[in-house]
Design a protein around this nucleic acid. Structure first.
Lengths: 224, 224
DNA sequence: TGTACACGATTCCTCAGACAAGTAGAGAGG
DNA sequence: CCTCTCTACTTGTCTGAGGAATCGTGTACA
């Protein structure tokens, strides 16, 4: 045995099936052998085969139709972002956020609508006021940043932002609790500058201010 | 009956559990009731509960540990990126790619290892040679860009690149076929400059060259 | 010859019961 | 207060049984 045999049989069976699908044994749309055939073939019981199939069905690779059989619906699994997030370090996540958000800030400056600008300024005021709990402050901060990304008018960037931010929320709360935060006044001023750059349609300034703010956040996270 | 009763019990059970998770009945990290409790509660047998749990485990929402219980690992199913890609326009995708890749190029310049640099130069040479078919050329081009992102040493950025690029591949092939491409020589020279900036550890130049190249690609795509 | 229907084989779906394997907490002992 | 052990609980796996849906085939009929 190479390692500890921790993986349940059902997981191993699912992995084995996925491997054979990837290898091209069953092309897209093909019908897999029946559970009663697959069981002995993999050396596991019928319920275990069923659980493996269910697992792959949840990932979108297989689909089973009663009376007909089990069919291949996708040859490749889109990597689960939850899994990627858990595995990747917090630093990798915030680097990705910097990439996304600096670009979004520039687009926001170029494309902002009056409505979007109002939303940004409202979020900025809200950020100033909500200082009750640390969670509240972090949530208000993220709402402000999200308003900027939304103003960029790119659904892919917004979706990326929404994917990354939950992973960072807890890390930021922990950091602020420890007291690693920067000066609160300077922080709010930096956010106000960013909002004004977007209002002035200055894309370069927006990109630069956004990056500067997030990089200081990154270095604070590195230290903690 | 509202509709046809096609949905298997296990699927219905999975949906019911997901609904209760979304509603906040079990917070992140919480332990679900045991299978023997959940079964009668949902009105299904234990194997059916297990299959429902497996399905959600495949989607990354639950995780079961033998002897301990079943735990919530995510409050929501991450949106299917394939669906987002299809809905979003090609321009949104390439804007996201610019954000990712310009940042990755800068990191690559700062962190590149000798091995990574060799891989980049090999991909560049490969790109110069593979001019047989349009598909081949595009694939070689993407392999070069991927080598740069890989050199950045950030798994999140690499995963993002791999998510976006397949969507852009067909668009690029179509564009080149129509003949909207830039001069081939200038294009190869621009790529060589980028590789050299990374070799010279010049992060700013790498970021600038990467952005310039991709933005010219973007404007070409806009016109087509 | 072509169409419609009935039937049976195949397949998945669900349940119940039994035992194995692993975990975590309570309690005894130092 | 710490450590060890044991027990109750939970998930993992297998087997057997019967129900339900689907698909292909054969037959009757026009």
């Amino acid at each position: 045995m190479a390692q500890i045999r921790r993986a349940p049989l059902a997981d191993q069976a699912a992995e084995a099936l996925l491997e054979r699908i990837r290898a091209g044994e069953w092309p897209l749309g093909a019908k897999l052998p029946g559970e009663t055939t697959l069981g002995p073939q993999l050396g596991v019981g019928r319920s275990t085969v069923r659980e493996a199939i269910r697992q792959l069905a949840g990932r979108g690779v297989l689909e089973s139709r009663q009376g007909a059989g089990v069919f291949v619906t996708a040859l490749d699994v889109t990597e689960d972002w939850n899994a990627v997030m858990r595995r990747a370090g917090i630093i990798s996540v915030i680097e990705a956020r910097i990439a996304i958000e600096a670009e979004a800030a520039a687009h926001a400056a170029a494309r902002r609508t009056p409505q979007a600008l109002r939303a940004i300024r409202r979020a900025l005021a809200d950020r100033q006021e909500r200082r009750g709990s640390t969670e509240d402050h972090v949530d208000a901060d993220m709402a402000f940043h999200r308003a900027i990304v939304a103003a960029a008018g790119n659904p892919v960037l917004l979706e990326l932002f929404d994917t990354f931010v939950p992973r960072l929320r807890q890390a930021m709360i922990d950091m602020l609790r420890i007291g690693r935060s920067l000066s609160v006044e300077r922080d709010q001023a930096a956010h106000a500058d960013l909002a004004e750059a977007i209002a002035a349609r200055d894309a370069d300034a927006a990109r630069r201010l956004s990056r500067a703010h997030l990089e200081s956040l990154e270095s604070a996270l590195r230290r903690s």
